[in-house]
């Protein structure tokens, strides 16, 4: 079988992906620690500051997360053909058709498979949703990081009313990312097995392999 390599993901998108991944992992671990500091509270007399250190790492990782999100928003508009939002959001007849085909395929219904270089429309919806959720997470985060800032107070109170509600939503959204990661990895592996286009390696190398059979 002959496969042809296609360049799909730009360097910047791959950088976005991996800084997003690493920042999310760091944020979830440190965030859970801030939520429930699990270290031994009975150790006294040492000058180490687990909560302050965890918060510091959380803040820095939060900036990485924000930067990654901003890069992805830029790529939604100015990225390559696969990276722009109209390529994968169900806003064109082609993508709406693809959405139902993908759903059928994931349900193991024999509806035929449209091979695409970029995201399918189902993934596209959830990626876009994830970016929106991430934006809410960023606002909640900066609202709590700079509680005295007029700018973040304005956005924070508009979205969450109070610090406490912002904190609660920030915490709940963390679980969204956990669930997203689990489903994302499952579907990526599933596709790597059933589509045979080198999906997993594409996020490292940027290239996908399309067989002539399609």
């Amino acid at each position: 079988m002959f496969y042809e390599r296609h360049q799909v993901w730009s360097v910047l998108l791959r950088l976005f992906h991996w800084s997003f991944v690493l920042s999310i992992v760091t944020l979830v671990i440190t965030g859970l620690y801030i939520h429930f500091p699990w270290t031994n509270t009975m150790v006294i007399g040492n000058s180490y500051f687990p909560v302050a250190t965890m918060r510091y790492i959380h803040f820095v990782a939060g900036f990485v997360f924000t930067a990654a999100l901003l890069v992805r928003i830029y790529l939604l508009l100015f990225g390559n053909a696969q990276e722009r939002f109209w390529d994968f959001l169900p806003i064109t007849p082609r993508n709406i058709k693809n959405l139902f085909k993908t759903l059928g395929r994931y349900l193991y219904l024999n509806v035929g498979h449209e091979h695409r270089l970029g995201h399918n429309a189902l993934a596209g919806i959830f990626y876009f949703l994830t970016f929106l959720v991430a934006a809410v997470q960023v606002v909640a985060g900066f609202f709590m990081l700079y509680p005295e800032s007029v700018f973040w107070q304005k956005w924070g109170t508009m979205l969450f009313v109070s610090q406490q509600q912002g904190r609660g939503i920030h915490y709940l959204i963390m679980w969204y990312f956990g669930v997203f990661a689990a489903i994302h990895i499952y579907i990526v592996v599933w596709n790597d097995i059933f589509s045979r286009n080198g999906l997993i390696s594409s996020i490292f190398s940027g290239g996908k392999y399309i067989s002539e059979d399609y």
């Binding site: 910047l12 510091y56 803040f59 900036f63 901003l70 890069v71 990081l145």
Partner: peptide, 23 residues
């Protein structure tokens, strides 16, 4: 930690802006 994270954050956001600029 807030001040330190803020200055780190400026560098991170600057690097992202640089990457976008190069792109």
């Amino acid at each position: 930690i807030v001040d330190a994270a803020t200055s780190k954050g400026k560098v991170i956001l600057g690097a992202a802006a640089g990457a976008v600029g190069i792109h």
